[in-house]
Design a protein around this nucleic acid. Sequence first.
DNA 1: CACGAAGCGGAGCAAGCGCTCCGGATAAGG
DNA 2: CCTTATCCGGAGCGCTTGCTCCGCTTCGTG
Lengths: 227, 227
Amino acid sequence: MAVPDPASATHPQPASATRPDPASATRPQPKGTTRRRAPRADALRNREAIIQAAAEVLAEQGTAVDVREIARRSGVGMGTLYRHFPKKEDLVHTVLLRDFSTWARAARATACDAEDPWTALTAFFQQALTGYARHRAIMENLALTWAGPDLEGVRQLRLVIEHLCDRACAAGLLRPGVTTDDLLLLLVSLGHAVQITDECRPGQWNRLLCISLDGLRATGHPQPLPA
Amino acid sequence: MAVPDPASATHPQPASATRPDPASATRPQPKGTTRRRAPRADALRNREAIIQAAAEVLAEQGTAVDVREIARRSGVGMGTLYRHFPKKEDLVHTVLLRDFSTWARAARATACDAEDPWTALTAFFQQALTGYARHRAIMENLALTWAGPDLEGVRQLRLVIEHLCDRACAAGLLRPGVTTDDLLLLLVSLGHAVQITDECRPGQWNRLLCISLDGLRATGHPQPLPA
DNA sequence: CACGAAGCGGAGCAAGCGCTCCGGATAAGG
DNA sequence: CCTTATCCGGAGCGCTTGCTCCGCTTCGTG
């Protein structure tokens, strides 16, 4: 299974929002000047607590969440939160990057486990919809893919889907003309279905998934897909 | 085509939010008391202007819209707006009822035009996704169907879908086990797909629709739907 | 231990929202 | 035409939300 690992390119560095250091804009590396002291232990601890709490809340409520709620849950004041992440958007970005990467990694593992390309595709959707469709902020962001430039994590996920698509296509199992974008859009659509039926009719989305997957099969369709 | 017409039950009375008249709670018809004068002409005009503007804005931006924007677009002050519709929710409700009914009526017409049950089903989805999936407030509300009690207009629409489902099923064209709820959920899912791809990739949802419809066909599926 | 840079907390600001209030305008009955 | 019930407009209140400010605390170092 020669899926390129997109995560290996981006090391587990603490994302981009660590501390821009405004002075570094003019002097990229002020070698002779006063050296910045290493971050304090409590600061690092708080940073992780904030990310953890934010991830939970963003998953539950989406990006519309109140920043105060994140501060409360991480046991940290507003000042602390905003020193680590100067804009709400920075925090959201950091969390999404992390969670998308986790998802992509898990998806790649699942996809490569299966011998049969069709089983791999099925397993991917099953896992995605069971595990990540409930993450409101992630699904929100995935829907924005068509409107703007992708988050790095989305690109990683796309690669996995692309690979699944190619494999099933090469094996002659996938309906001709189906693209990666089609599968991505299907994922977002079904993700929405999961969110709205999850609490009242858990499992109903499974029927839709089954229907859609059968529509994706290579056999038994009267006419080709429209352009 | 014996589809029961749900609109015939609810006459085109000016909805429920006309003017509750708090006193009427205790005295339903105070015959002897001072008779309420008929509403003034400008009041009626403004009411229609508000509903019209609200419909436009709700379609564009969904229920999260600012009430001031509605007032601005209808050329009316806040006071006027809130006298006609004491709560934002009342206005939204009125508009949704109107637009859902329009939709249901159009859908019923389209569905009954087609001789072939499958053509009817296809035409229904095509029309719904082309014409109404862009109405953000309507799609929002449709998604809430699973979480709470239905709006009257949603019930009307459900009846149409139910009829389409029954017809296709009786003709042996629909995959066994497919329910009205499945079709409704599919509609909401695809509606979401339309909204997110509409501006950047118009027409991509057509491929998803095609795939889903083929998955709904009675023939060529390896296994029955899950419970 | 003592000191200061780094970090902390939360009151508070500005903007946006739903909704109210009330002085002034006006349509309709006499 | 006059009177008045009815209606109009928009300033403004109370609340939420993103974000800032600044006095106080704490960690790490010499």
